[in-house]
């Protein structure tokens, strides 16, 4: 096994391609979580409706 053909791995044993894929997955997960937060917010507002402002204080 020649050293030139061996993919270079970092301290965690990841190649550059592994790191790229992990970064893509992390970004996708962050986007999905962000969209879920926005969706939960919108759904909450929609379910509460305008009546939420009409209440005894």
């Amino acid at each position: 096994m020649s050293g030139g053909e061996e993919e270079e791995r970092d301290a965690q044993g990841l190649t550059a391609a592994d790191r790229r894929r992990r970064r893509q997955r992390s970004i996708a997960l962050a986007l999905a979580l962000g969209l879920l937060v926005a969706l939960f917010y919108l759904v909450t507002i929609a379910k509460l409706g305008p009546g939420v402002l009409i209440r005894p204080l």
Binding site: G13, L14, T15
Partner: peptide, 15 residues
């Protein structure tokens, strides 16, 4: 061809 089995090999499009 990729990483050790403990590391996910999947790309976003695979999921």
């Amino acid at each position: 061809s990729r990483a050790p089995a403990t590391v996910s090999n999947g790309e976003v499009r695979d999921f």
